[in-house]
Structure formats: C-alpha cells, structure tokens
Design a binder for these strands. Structure first.
Lengths: 144, 144
DNA sequence: AATGCAGATGCGAATAGTTCGCATCTGCAT
DNA sequence: ATGCAGATGCGAACTATTCGCATCTGCATT
C-alpha cells in the first residue's frame, strides 16, 4: 500500500519523497480536517526529520494536484486540510469545545442549480458549516 | 439618524465616540461584507484621524454586542464584517474576480432541524458560501 | 551499483493580518 | 466646568504562513 501511494504521487508527476509519502498516508487516515501544525506535530511524533515549512510546501502541492482539500473552519483563523474524497463532506462544529464531526450528506445541490439559473454563474464549489453546542458542552453550560 | 445610532450604542452600554458612530454608519450602508482594512481605508478617506488598531477594536466590540457579524469568506485569509440584519445572508463568490453578491434566501433551515435531531447538538448558526465563476469571467476564460 | 542533477528539504528570516501595551485623549456623569 | 473610566493612537509583538538560500535526495542514466 505504501507503493500505491508512490504510484499515486508519481502518476501526478510528484516526486515520491519520504516526507510526501508519510504525509499522504497520515492524511488518508484522518476522519476530520487538520491544520498544518496539527499535521506537523503528528508527523514529528513518529519521525523526527520533519520541518514545518516542508509540511506547508507538501500540503500546497497536494492541494494543487487535488489530492487534498484546503479550507477554513469558522472556529479559528487557520487553514484546515483533509484528503479528497469521492463525495465531499461538511462538518458540524461545537463552538464551545471545537469538536468537529462529519455530516453524512449535502443538502444544497439543488439550491446550486437554482442559483446558477438565476445569476448566470457557473457554480464550482460550495462551503457549508453548521455550528452548535454539543450535548456534552450543553451539560457544562447548565451546571455552572 | 446620527442620534439613532448614538442611542443604539448607548442602549448597549457602548460609549458613543466619533469613531464608533462613524464606523457603525459606514457598515450600515454596505451591501456586502468588508475586511477591517477595507473599512479603515474607507473611513480614512473621509476622516483622517482613524487608526487601524481602533478599527479592529471597535469591530470587536460591535461583534460582541451583536451589532455586526464577523466571518471568513473562502476567497482569502482575512476576516469580513457586515451589519447584523433581521434575516441572515449568504454570498455567491466569483473565484476569478472575487466579486461578492448576496443571495436572497437560505436553503438549510430544515436541514438544521434534522441535524439537531440526529446529533443532539443545539444548533446556533451556520455558514454557507457558493463559489463559481461570474458571467463576465466566463467570457474571459473563453477568449484567452 | 555509482553518478549527476533537478527538484525537495531544513532552517531562519520575512510577511500579512491581527492584537497588545502604554501614554494620551475624550465622552459623559457629576 | 471638572474628573475619570474608558477609548484612541502609535508602535511593537504575535501567529500563521511563505520565502531565500544552502544542503540534501530521489531517480534517470550509465
């Protein structure tokens, strides 16, 4: 499977270095988006040759080659990265503890068609986040 | 109307300084969200005593008092600010020229109820952006 | 297997947006 | 008109991200 990743990288014309292979595997495992720093710290924990600039550069290349998606979440001012999936995902964010949970479907495909018709835009993408307070933090709010 | 704004500020316990009154009026006029720097430059054009730190501080206070909304748009890494309206708004963004146009309705209120039921979250807010290429930029893409 | 080199990495410094510290100034209650 | 809590101006600090440059490495070629 390590060689699968090598093949994926090579097929995109990306040189398969240790760092890139490791980062691609790491991102593939995640269930939610991570920041560059999260990724750096995870990588560093196992392998000590990682450098933060390199993480940023590798992420940038992966984004340009559609291997991963870069986005912002309304909880802070950082960029988040996640592997590109067949079906895109949206997230539910807890504004109290910053928990991030993936939602199972996307309710706005029809809406996009309507907007395209009304505005003449050619729709490329969209971004949806739902913010709330998770059951656990709701308890916290009540008891203090 | 200037005094209306003074009253609004005072009713929230916010001291009605020149800068705050001016910024609140300025934000009230806008049809789309602006960055702190946009706001600073607009203000500076008319009045020369404005300071960027003050703009940030005033915006912060307005946000804390629900007079304005702070958000990020998927076109760059800056924060955007807009006046709080009775009915919230979403935007259609052109990924080529960064045009921002307001959309007239919100398609996901029902979806929120469903998510609340499924996850136990108490939903507080949401964030939706549609990204595309405006009719004008579509032409540009064809001809070059 | 050894070699050469384009491109990748590591490191520190630079940058951009935003926030903070502190001295000075100002709204507004008295 | 006066005093003072809180607001502003200014520059410095901070954080996430990017850049410049010297060194290193994947990999095509021999």
């Amino acid at each position: 499977m390590n060689s699968d990743i090598k093949e994926i990288l090579k097929s995109k014309g990306i040189k398969a270095t240790r760092q890139r292979i490791y980062l691609y595997e790491l991102l593939k495992k995640q269930e939610k988006p991570l920041t560059a720093e999260d990724i750096y710290l995870l990588a560093k924990k196992e392998i000590d040759y990682f450098n933060l600039s390199t993480v940023y550069r590798v992420l940038d290349i992966f984004v340009k080659n559609n291997l991963i998606i870069k986005s912002k979440l309304d909880i802070d001012e950082k960029f988040y990265f996640e592997i590109t999936r067949d079906k895109h995902r949206h997230y539910l964010l807890c504004i109290s503890c910053n928990q991030i949970i993936p939602l199972s479907d996307c309710p706005i495909e029809k809406y996009e068609e309507q907007i395209a018709r009304e505005t003449g835009y050619s729709i490329v993408d969209h971004n949806l986040e739902i913010k709330g307070i998770c059951p656990n933090c709701q308890k916290g709010y009540q008891t203090h």
